[in-house]
Amino acid sequence: MSATAQTIDRISPETTLFESILELIRRTSTQLPDDVVRAVTGARKNEVEGSNADFALNVIGCNIGLAREGSLPLCQDTGTILFYVHTPAGYDQLAFEEIATEAVRTATKKGYLRQNSVDSITGKNTGDNTGPGSPVFHFHQWREPHVEVKVMLKGGGCENMNVQYSLPHPALGDRDLNGVENAILDCVLQAQGQGCGPGILGVCIGGDRGTGYGFAKEQLLRLLDDANPDPVLAELEERVVDKANQSGIGPMGFGGKTTLLACKIGTRNRLPASFFVSIAYMCWAYRRRGAELDLSGNVTEWLY
């Protein structure tokens, strides 16, 4: 028996892990997390009854209920499938990737995921959501004894609204927190009507162009009502949401008070020569869920 086969055997009996991941994908596509449901439904009280904004939030609320009851996708665009996985040292990540990819194929057959992976040159759809770069895996090791897996589905409409600014910028300002704030609000202005708002922003200040976008997206793994441990960033997050909600853009860009549900900001060190502000725009169909697994692949706790 090869070393790999032994590890799989020892750590993750295939069917248990497969079933756990499949169920995680089903929940992610069909059940919006509680913190997001609270934010969306809570926002309705800020809108004028009978306004278009109120109507939009009401329809979104109904849609969340219908998807959950019918175990149907919240939105027909089930987006890029992103896995964020933490494993103990020595855990077989290659086996995990194979099994999770198989779970994605099955989830696509079952209709939890739309066929969404297209060859960039030929335009041919692979039909099962797998292929070069899909699904996306981010593996990290940690000192905990168990495995943690988080899944995010990020739709195309909102992904198209992601943007990266380089400061200083003639219209937006210098390499300081004011410049960052102006850049984020410019993104909100430009994204209106396009990314199925109310939106949620993940922001990274610093990094290089690649890691900046990656870390911005990772901010979307935070809970909507958590507090940023850095008081300066916590204040900036609050200020951005406040100003965005005074812009009048509103849900779907119909006008109204609910433009952003949250803004989550993190930082990475940068080169002296660079200052990037990278923004990941998430739509209201903010599908992210997670689970803690024991080494046999059993779910010990559902996250979010």
Binding site: A56, V59, L72, G157
Partner: peptide
């Protein structure tokens, strides 16, 4: 304008 993302409604 329909409500974006409201596939089930």
């Amino acid at each position: 304008h329909a409500i974006g993302g409201a596939a089930q409604v």
